[in-house]
Computed example of a mutant assay.
Amino acid sequence: MNTQVCELRDDDRRPPASDVLQVVQRGLGMRPKRLPSWLFYDERGSQLFEEICAQPEYYLTRAEIDLMNVHAAEIAQVLGPDVRLIEYGSGSAIKTRMLLEQLTTPVSYMPVEISPEPLRESVEQFGRLFPGLAIQPLCADFTRPLRLPIPPRAPRRNVLYFPGSTIGNFEARDAIDLLRKMRNEMGEGGGILVGVDLKKDSAAIEAAYNDKAGVTAEFTLNMLTRINREIGSDFDLSAFRHRARYNPMAGRIETYIVSTREQQVRVGRARVTFGEEEAMQVEYSCKYSLEDFATLATHAGLRVQDAWMDPQRQFSVQFLVRA
């Protein structure tokens, strides 16, 4: 049977390079300064994130894979046959392979990824692994409304798959907005299968975002490399450092790029001043209890139908349906 792989499709809603200057200018004009985390994911950033997932301190990927090893068949049974699987932020899609292997007669797999090269690699990989599966890639920003391609046949249900812990990168209000958007896109009878990192010992959480090999620090500072390349800024990476700390009151890791000295950086036609030890916020990584996330889902018009955890109870995958 021939592989049914569609052409890589760009829905024209990704932030274009021409917007990066405006985004950076706006973010550096805030007090405190902040930049959106999607700026991490150029080609090099995506490669570095894959390296982060392999670091010994980064428990999240191992925990989720352990979870899927134990529960993938049960999850597939809950989803049922004839599913169209739409994955947000597909990346290398390791967990997705484990799920697709268990699904009964899936209609199609639609990876949605903002970085074109990781998406192409994912499509090629899945074309080899699942030669009879229709693959409909979409190069897009999943936080914006998506124009979904027409599936090859009518699915019994749409399942939006959001693995990893990316939902934790959104503050509560933004996470609710994203879940509402997903609720609309999944349609009647659809569902959302989402990975949620759980609250645990704060030292273990902090270590995951401060690996000894320094890969996470390189990943964070690569954002400045991207900005230099795309808009002609002159960030001196040696004058900035990565900082990630767990805020137990807010239940989240807070990641910053910190200026190590007083300096000015060219951004467009302007010069932006940084003070010594001035911190620029670039990412949150929220952690939840099962009760916390159930409450969040309720605010988006959803309810948790099923939830699974890895054997060490560090990570969860939850299936949300309309309330």
Results as ranks from 00 to 15, higher is better:
320 L>E: 04
178 L>D: 00
272 V>S: 07
311 P>A: 02
307 A>C: 12
283 E>A: 11
80 G>M: 04
275 G>I: 04
33 K>D: 05
286 C>V: 14
8 L>F: 08
273 T>M: 12
172 A>S: 10
314 Q>G: 13
245 R>S: 10
322 R>E: 13
229 R>F: 02
222 N>W: 01
19 D>R: 12
35 L>H: 09
20 V>T: 10
75 I>C: 02
88 Y>R: 03
292 D>H: 06
105 T>Y: 12
94 I>S: 09
280 M>T: 03
80 G>D: 08
28 L>G: 01
252 R>I: 00
111 P>A: 09
139 C>T: 04
72 A>Y: 11
161 Y>R: 04
11 D>Y: 05
192 I>R: 07
323 A>N: 15
292 D>A: 06
225 T>I: 04
264 Q>W: 04
5 V>K: 14
258 V>M: 00
43 E>Q: 13
2 N>D: 14
203 A>E: 12
212 K>I: 00
76 A>I: 12
211 D>A: 03
78 V>E: 11
166 T>E: 05
291 E>T: 13
241 R>C: 07
151 P>S: 00
199 K>T: 09
265 V>L: 00
24 V>K: 02
212 K>E: 00
130 F>W: 03
52 I>L: 06
204 A>M: 10
319 F>W: 15
95 K>M: 07
245 R>G: 03
261 R>T: 06
193 L>W: 04
41 Y>Q: 00
296 L>A: 06
287 K>V: 09
190 G>R: 00
206 E>Q: 11
28 L>W: 04
13 R>W: 09
81 P>E: 01
252 R>G: 03
73 A>G: 10
59 Y>N: 00
288 Y>D: 09
